[in-house]
Simulated assay, not measured.
Amino acid sequence: MWNNVRQLNLAANALYALLALVLLAASGYWLTQRPAFALRVISIDGDTEHINTPTVRAGVVGRLKGNFFTVDLDAARQQFEQMPWVRRASVRRVWPNALAITLEEYKPLGTWGSDQLVSVDGELFTANQGELEQTLPAFDGPNGTAKEVVARYVDFKKWLAPLGAEPDEVTLSPRYAWTVKLSNGTQIEYGRERNPTTLAERSKRLTAAWTAVTGRWGKDIEYADLRYPNGFAIRAAGMRFIGDAGKAAK
């Protein structure tokens, strides 16, 4: 090899190239560690109705590691998405020393159980309910049924609109029986959903007779049981009326 000029030239060129790469890497590392690239600006925008920006900076920014080049954007995103009210976050670098954070909040529809909230998309989340500006409907149900309960709330709101009241509470029991409490104080027992039209048909039966019922017994209807095959039962002012009486279907 030492007598082969061509091979010596190739070896020398390879060494020069390796040295150039080492120097380039060292220079790059030195450059990325300069104070000019330390994260100095964190901008937060997007949907931040319930998010306190100073609190975000104090609680999350201090845990971010690295500078403009080395910060882990995915880890930063996860940090922001662990905050109350935050449904989704996106994080991007802004040259030369900033991060831009865009947040999307959960849109609360109601409370869930004793300590959670449920969004308009049927997603459960935990946040300070004292920050709510208004009283929300109360929902509850077995694990994994939040989307179903939210969907049925929308249906009940539409089906029961002729009564001049809205659902304040919607509960799906462990046996998958539905109970609705209205803003006028009436509690409605729907029972289990036997087929896709069960709840709609029972609602229609009640609303169709509502004028006659309230005309006879007054508007203070405390309870309506719709689980009968061909009618319903009500309780008002200590009295009980059964329409098309029959055995209640649980």
Score class of each variant (00 low, 15 high):
residue 3 N to Q: 15
residue 3 N to H: 15
residue 7 Q to R: 11
residue 9 N to C: 15
residue 10 L to P: 02
residue 12 A to N: 08
residue 12 A to E: 01
residue 13 N to K: 12
residue 13 N to S: 13
residue 17 A to T: 06
residue 21 L to C: 12
residue 21 L to G: 03
residue 24 L to I: 09
residue 25 A to Q: 03
residue 26 A to H: 01
residue 26 A to F: 04
residue 26 A to Q: 05
residue 29 Y to H: 13
residue 29 Y to F: 08
residue 31 L to C: 05
residue 33 Q to C: 04
residue 33 Q to H: 10
residue 35 P to M: 02
residue 35 P to H: 00
residue 36 A to I: 09
residue 38 A to V: 09
residue 38 A to E: 10
residue 41 V to W: 05
residue 42 I to F: 14
residue 43 S to G: 08
residue 47 D to Y: 03
residue 50 H to C: 06
residue 50 H to E: 07
residue 51 I to H: 01
residue 52 N to I: 11
residue 52 N to F: 12
residue 54 P to C: 05
residue 55 T to I: 11
residue 62 G to V: 13
residue 62 G to R: 15
residue 67 N to V: 13
residue 69 F to K: 12
residue 69 F to V: 10
residue 72 D to F: 05
residue 74 D to S: 12
residue 75 A to K: 13
residue 79 Q to N: 11
residue 81 E to V: 01
residue 82 Q to S: 15
residue 86 V to L: 06
residue 90 S to A: 14
residue 91 V to W: 01
residue 92 R to Q: 14
residue 92 R to N: 09
residue 94 V to S: 15
residue 95 W to Q: 12
residue 97 N to T: 03
residue 97 N to R: 01
residue 98 A to N: 06
residue 101 I to E: 02
residue 107 K to S: 14
residue 108 P to H: 05
residue 109 L to A: 01
residue 109 L to S: 02
residue 110 G to C: 10
residue 111 T to H: 12
residue 113 G to K: 11
residue 116 Q to L: 09
residue 116 Q to C: 01
residue 124 L to D: 01
residue 126 T to L: 12
residue 128 N to I: 02
residue 128 N to W: 02
residue 132 L to I: 05
residue 132 L to D: 05
residue 133 E to N: 13
residue 137 P to S: 13
residue 141 G to E: 04
residue 144 G to Q: 11
residue 144 G to M: 12
residue 148 E to T: 13
residue 148 E to V: 11
residue 151 A to L: 09
residue 152 R to Q: 15
residue 154 V to H: 11
residue 156 F to I: 03
residue 158 K to E: 14
residue 159 W to Q: 10
residue 160 L to D: 00
residue 161 A to L: 06
residue 161 A to I: 00
residue 164 G to I: 08
residue 164 G to W: 06
residue 165 A to W: 00
residue 165 A to S: 12
residue 169 E to N: 06
residue 171 T to M: 10
residue 171 T to N: 09
residue 172 L to C: 07
residue 173 S to F: 06
residue 173 S to H: 02
residue 173 S to K: 05
residue 177 A to V: 02
residue 181 K to E: 06
residue 185 G to M: 03
residue 186 T to K: 01
residue 187 Q to L: 13
residue 191 G to K: 08
residue 193 E to M: 14
residue 194 R to T: 09
residue 194 R to C: 04
residue 195 N to I: 05
residue 196 P to D: 08
residue 198 T to Y: 00
residue 200 A to L: 10
residue 203 S to C: 12
residue 205 R to Y: 10
residue 209 A to W: 03
residue 213 V to G: 07
residue 216 R to I: 08
residue 216 R to Y: 04
residue 216 R to P: 02
residue 218 G to T: 03
residue 220 D to S: 06
residue 222 E to A: 14
residue 226 L to T: 00
residue 227 R to M: 07
residue 228 Y to F: 15
residue 230 N to C: 01
residue 235 R to D: 09
residue 236 A to M: 04
residue 237 A to C: 01
residue 238 G to P: 02
residue 239 M to I: 07
residue 239 M to V: 12
residue 245 A to W: 08
residue 247 K to V: 15
residue 248 A to W: 04
residue 248 A to D: 09
